[in-house]
Design a protein around this nucleic acid. Structure first.
Lengths: 164, 164
DNA sequence: AGGGGATAATTTGTATTTCTAAGTATTTAT
DNA sequence: ATAAATACTTAGAAATACAAATTATCCCCT
């Protein structure tokens, strides 16, 4: 098989694995995958606005608002109007939210780190630079391909998420 | 930063990029992301049963059934009762489905392949073996961690996707 | 042969995600 | 000071996702 095909297959495997892991964590925390993603993002950033969360998760603000509604009802996050800019809403984990995220969610990362650190240093470096290469390529690709794909939008017949 | 942390960050970037790409393709084909995933899976496998699709996509059969309903309504896939085992339902792309998948969806992969093939051979090999390593690790990890995470299920208070 | 359990898919019912469009409040720029 | 832009929410609708129940078929065992 071509190297490029191998890489594509492996990438799909990697994405599938992380997807399954996310579902494991979802189940063990009692959160849905999007809710979990909000929690994870907040764990790493302390405080974010609704808009920043939306951008980070590649979702619309409206979507994030509704996910936050549910997390707020469960008292896992708190919303706070901005003082300096009152349009903004700052979101952060509550005590309870921090507590929940202390359990299972870290486990997976810990296992990864442990396995990763068992490798020889040269291999770690090799992997990091490979991942850098791939990440860069894929990122550039998204930017390049978006305009290309828009050409196809002219004649699509069954458009609109909300109409299928 | 630690190598392991770098790797984690890069993996997240990679997943985010592919996620954005999928959304681009979704928009250009007029399919939702899950619908697209069914189509892509079928493009690679010619014929699959509902259950095989569900397993491949890490979803329940019920969910896949409802996605298939909509794709069938659009005449992009066809269902056919198994002959040798009548419980099974074989799913495949229709002419129209194949046609739709010929456009945009391949573009992204083509760009990837083109970029990948521009690299030196030694670098291609390096990346492939790095991805192999990561894919293997993550896969093993899912299997290892699942039982661990189940322990936490005993005292979870807000369980169940369908009750949040 | 023929019943009981397992398997494959669907149906049902409900919560959640996700989007677009419209609306509100606030800030910024002219 | 007013218009445009920004940040977020609300409203409404389609799609996704699950568990549980149902239907049909298969397979095994006595």
């Amino acid at each position: 098989m071509e190297n490029s095909q191998k890489a594509l297959v492996l990438l799909r495997q990697i994405i599938r694995s992380t997807d399954m892991q996310d579902k494991d964590i979802s189940r063990s925390t009692g959160l849905t995958p999007p809710q979990l993603m909000v929690m994870q993002t907040l764990r790493e950033n302390t405080q974010l606005t609704t808009g920043e969360l939306a951008k980070e998760m590649v979702l619309t603000q409206a979507t994030v608002t509704s996910i936050l509604d549910r997390l707020e009802r469960k008292e896992l996050i708190a919303r706070e109007r901005g003082i300096e800019d009152k349009r903004k809403v700052w979101v952060s984990l509550t005590e309870k939210g921090v507590e929940l995220m202390k359990g299972a969610p870290t486990t997976q990362q810990d296992i990864f780190v442990r396995n990763f650190e068992d490798m020889q240093n040269w291999e770690q470096s090799m992997i990091v630079s490979s991942l850098e290469r791939i990440a860069f390529m894929l990122n550039a690709q998204h930017l390049d391909a978006a305009p290309l794909l828009d050409i196809g939008e002219l004649d699509r017949s069954q458009q609109e998420y909300s109409k299928n």
